[in-house]
């Protein structure tokens, strides 16, 4: 079955780290560069994330995401470099186009912020199963219903897509045109989406009943098939990360 999750199954210590520690790492990688506004710190944060991604052997999987992000960032660089109101110092000129230093520096700050956030999230998304993440959050006290909603999306959406293609085939077999001009496609839209939506509603009702009889709303203390994933050094790592955030805060307040 096609999965819409980006998780990549590899063997690495990054994969072994529990999801909560990864969440704390995300907080660290986002907060510290904001609290301490220096380029060096931002570079270090991006660097750490990239090294971790490399250790997790998923660096290649990040390429499509980063290239999409860069596409957006290039426009930021161009617009800020050319038109930021505070622009004074001319950096270089290309014909009628003038690039200014202030704008470029500002664009660099934004770029680094985005990169720290994207790379930190990528560690979580690429090396953690969605179900594992949700399960550890449920253990920490998140409502199982919300957890179910999040996890089931990853399976129910591909199932609905499969239903769409089945219905498309069925309607085609009855002679409906589904290809051709925009108008033809538009006309085919309703007879395709009607059954999909109605079917999904009926399925949801039946699934809700099936969940009920399997004790989904039971008040009993839940147990888990798998033992909670713990990484030998996760306490140490968490402590260090939290300490780094606190340290950054203290530095900011004092200076």
């Amino acid at each position: 079955m096609k999965s819409i999750s980006l998780y990549v199954n590899r063997n690495s210590f990054v994969h072994d780290v529990d999801p909560i520690t990864k969440l704390i790492y995300i907080a660290f990688a986002i907060l510290v560069p904001i609290i301490v506004p220096s380029f060096t710190i931002s570079f270090i944060c991006v660097g750490i994330s990239l090294v971790l991604l490399a250790f997790a052997k998923v660096l290649r999987k990040t390429v499509p995401v980063f290239s999409f992000v860069f596409l957006v960032l290039i426009t930021v660089v161009i617009i800020q470099g050319l038109f930021k109101p505070e622009n004074e110092t001319v950096l270089f000129q290309l014909g009628p186009i003038t690039m200014y230093q202030e704008g470029l520096l500002f664009a660099l700050t934004i770029t680094l912020r985005v990169l720290t956030i994207v790379s930190a999230f990528m560690i979580l998304v690429l090396t953690t199963k969605p179900s594992e993440l949700v399960e550890s959050l449920v253990r920490k006290g998140m409502s199982p219903s919300i957890g179910y909603m999040i996890v089931s999306v990853f399976q129910i959406i591909p199932e609905m897509m499969a239903a769409v293609s089945t219905i498309t085939d069925a309607q085609r077999a009855r002679g409906m045109e589904t290809e051709g001009s925009f108008f033809v496609r538009f006309k085919a839209f309703l007879p395709l989406m009607g059954p999909v939506v109605l079917g999904a509603l009926i399925n949801t009702k039946e699934r809700a009943m099936a969940l009920e009889v399997r004790g989904f709303n039971s008040q009993v203390q839940k147990t888990y098939l798998y033992e909670e994933k713990t990484y030998a050094y996760s306490r140490l790592i968490r402590a260090l990360l939290l300490l780094a955030i606190a340290g950054a805060l203290v530095w900011r307040i004092l200076s």
Binding site: S131, Y148, Q155, I156, R207, L211
Partner: peptide, 11 residues
Amino acid sequence: NPFTQVTGSKM
């Protein structure tokens, strides 16, 4: 219907 009894939250 066995299909709608699959919870969808398990891999």
